[in-house]
Design a protein around this nucleic acid. Structure first.
Lengths: 265, 265
DNA sequence: ACCCGTGTGTCCGCTACCGTACAGAGGGAG
DNA sequence: CTCCCTCTGTACGGTAGCGGACACACGGGT
């Protein structure tokens, strides 16, 4: 594998039209994303946006007492720094590198200029932002109703989707911070998965052996977000309105009392 | 009495410039929002956007098994239907009237047209959407880390902010659905508040007696969202609406349940 | 080779919340 | 006034996950 470093490895950049590429690509700067690097802190005024290629960035919410929770994961399907073109300039979250790799960086002003040309890139970025909204909403619901076991599966799947391999470099401690649970909770959940032969891990290295079974043990949250993200970001710069598929997958039952236990293993 | 009903009661509409008002207001339609009315279901293609005046709308996420959770609350500071201008046309959530009143409705196409004029209204709507992002993110974190007691306080405060009075018409059962917890959990939490003389309630009617103490019992989530929303929507076009600034939200940190540590780089 | 720090496995008491069940309290409709 | 339905209060066992403590195991650095 030659180092095939190309902005179009990022799907958003790859979806741009030739004229847009001409305007944007010359100003992109490839930067290494080292594990644990903080792209911005809560409240920082953003200076750049980052388009990950083979890296994964987590948006982490850290509270006053130090408790934290991941609200979103961004890989090569998205970008970091939506607050720039949304107009807020800052967000109350931290962007931290969850899996090392590279990203292309663009000075905020350039992105804003392109955004306000109101071309295809604006539409694209808005749709991505909606995908982000969906992901956050689903995270909120998942946090409310699902077990650590299920959430670990979701988290592994989301990471897998953004990586070229089945190996994650990630300690249980870090996963716990992302999920906002105790490390011991992750140890236990991961132990179960390992006993079942679904994953194998040792000292900060997790290998997924059986993805289909991982999906089966997961809550619906993973699939819902993936489907909605795919829908939103398909047809990169095709202006025709997409026909939203009324799928039975998301049929809403008529507001009954809630029932929220998960199925037995 | 005559001007009881005015589009500018909605802050977004009130922040529009005169030319924008001329284009938009003639097409607004005032519609009653009755308690429990569903503006759209998960997956519905949106036909209108709604600008609440004295009503409150909840964005509710309903899962396959019927479990639910509120991901956002919208009152006269915002609008329902961001997916229209964000390009997705649908969202996987339900919009349901949580407190009766009125809203101004606009056909989606008109909003999109105005949005794509790339004027002040676009900036306004984008900033509002970022506020929505913040609210969802905070909800996710709150769901993870805070007790039902704290979340009830947050929920009451968010509702109060969007109402002209201190009375909410809302059964514990409905609140439970919003928070995604059991009704009994709400009964217990509300009972504590009542015993402390902070609220009084009976049969679907809740009166807040002591707001400052409510804020003190609340987690930080309320204040964070309020502050960020104020920052984002602070008179974007300076129409100087006759809104006397509320008491500056005192940040209240009350008995966190846990403290997860996080890594340092 | 040896340490020793980092990562993982395990235990135990504790609390918040769940699932279920049922009893009383209003209040509107007849 | 009475019935009945909705709303609220309470109780009880069960459990997921917390907080804290500790033991071990790998493996890189000196």
């Amino acid at each position: 594998m030659a180092d095939l470093h190309d902005p179009t490895q990022n799907h958003l950049l790859g979806a741009l039209s030739p004229p847009e590429r001409e305007r944007i690509f010359p100003h992109l700067q490839r930067v290494p994303m080292t594990l644990g690097k903080v792209l911005y802190e809560s409240g920082d005024v953003l200076r750049h946006v980052y388009f990950p290629t083979d890296s994964i960035i987590s948006l982490l919410y850290v509270m006053a007492d130090g408790a934290s929770a991941e609200i979103s994961v961004v890989g090569n399907e998205g970008l970091i720094g939506v607050a720039l073109f949304m107009g807020g300039e800052t967000t109350p979250s931290r962007a931290i590198v969850q899996s090392a790799g590279y990203a292309y960086r663009l000075v905020g002003q350039r992105l804003k200029e392109e955004f306000h040309r109101n071309g295809a890139m604006q539409l694209l970025l808005l749709r991505y932002t909606q995908a982000l909204l969906t992901q956050m909403a689903q995270t909120a619901v998942c946090n409310r109703h699902h077990s650590v076991d299920q959430q670990l599966c979701r988290w592994l799947l989301m990471s897998l989707d953004r990586l070229p391999t089945n190996d994650l470099t990630m300690t249980q401690e870090l996963i716990a911070n992302m999920l906002g649970v105790r490390r011991e909770g992750v140890t236990e959940a991961a132990g179960k998965l390992q006993k079942l032969g679904i994953i194998r891990y040792a000292r900060g290295r997790i290998t997924v052996l059986d993805r289909p079974r991982l999906e089966r043990r997961c809550c619906e949250c993973y699939a819902v977000v993936k489907k909605e993200t795919d829908r939103l970001l398909r047809q990169p710069y095709d202006a025709s309105p997409s026909e939203p598929s009324r799928d039975p997958a998301e049929v809403a039952v008529a507001a009954p009392r809630q029932a929220n236990r998960h199925r037995a293993p």
